[in-house]
């Protein structure tokens, strides 16, 4: 017994040491960005250390002002306005579609599912222009509709596939007994599938939030007015070599832009690690 305990303890300590060392590699870039927001241009590009030789203050307050026309407050709220509905609609639409694929038999199901996946396989470079023309025809350019409406129609196949995999991991006996109780298929979705899929749904929310938050290419193409820029565009708005880039402000705003996704992850992780085993239904 005691021998086992010692062994367990050493394993625990080793795990901690390992996690800490690797953790430094993971977190170093963020720490460096933070310290870079207090450095001069010269120091940012000439040394790798974390502690600035000469501390420059004001990067946050100056950087927040943007290029004078719109402040980063505007860019933050733009990003939320663009990302939150997109995430919400992605969850709803992907859940419905994934449920349809995972739990029902119907004709052409396999070819249709192949189409779902196929839409992930064509490189975006060559669909940018037709998509742009499509949204232009719909008169949606320079608005957030090209992000929100397609999400409402389950065009993010990654999440459909992901949810299908999770739903298939839920034992069918559970919904079969509900069928016998006279539940409709929609009720099974809301009463059985969704509660059991909570970890997966939270993962969808996190992934989609982070990806949309960082997405640069699509806003670049669809959004023209600086007034409507999300953060990803605003952060790169001043990166031009024929002019003087004030790097500490760029770094300062980059650090701020990381806060919402980090907070979201930190506070929602308890849901995705709370598996079926802990909800008591299966255990």
């Amino acid at each position: 017994m005691r021998k086992g305990e010692v062994k367990k303890n050493t394993r625990l300590i080793l795990s901690y040491i390992f996690l800490c060392i690797l953790g430094i590699i993971m977190v170093y870039p963020l720490l460096w960005m933070f310290s870079a927001s207090f450095k001069t241009n010269n120091e940012i590009f000439s040394s790798f250390t974390l502690i600035p030789k000469k501390i420059v203050t004001g990067a946050y307050s100056q950087g927040w002002k943007g290029s004078g026309q719109y402040s980063f407050g505007r860019f933050f709220s733009n990003t939320f306005i663009m990302v939150l509905p997109t995430v919400f609609f992605t969850i709803i639409s992907s859940l419905l579609v994934a449920y349809g694929f995972a739990r029902f038999k119907f004709r052409y199901k396999k070819p249709l599912f192949a189409l779902v996946l196929a839409s992930l396989m064509l490189p975006t470079e060559v669909v940018i222009i037709p998509r742009y023309i499509l949204f232009n025809t719909l008169d949606w350019l320079d608005s957030y509709l090209p992000f929100i409406i397609p999400a409402a129609f389950a065009t993010h196949s990654f999440f459909i596939f992901m949810l299908v995999q999770y739903i298939r991991g839920i034992p069918k006996e559970l919904d079969e007994s509900a069928v016998i109780d006279g539940c409709s298929s929609f009720k099974i979705l809301t009463k059985i599938i969704i509660p059991l899929c909570k970890p997966a749904i939270v993962s969808v929310a996190i992934f989609q939030f982070v990806w949309r938050w960082n997405d640069f290419l699509n806003p670049l193409i669809y959004i023209s007015s600086v007034r409507k820029y999300p953060l990803s565009l605003a952060l790169r708005m001043t990166l031009d070599v024929t002019d003087t880039i004030i790097w500490n402000q760029v770094m300062a705003m980059s650090v701020l832009s990381l806060i919402p996704p980090v907070l979201l992850f930190f506070f929602t992780q308890k849901y995705f690690v709370e598996g079926i085993a802990t909800t008591g239904l299966k255990g």
């Binding site: 004078g68 026309q69 708005m237 001043t238 024929t242 002019d243 003087t244």
Partner: peptide, 11 residues
Amino acid sequence: WGADTRHQATL
């Protein structure tokens, strides 16, 4: 295209 000084002057 540009950075802060050009943006501000142009605006």
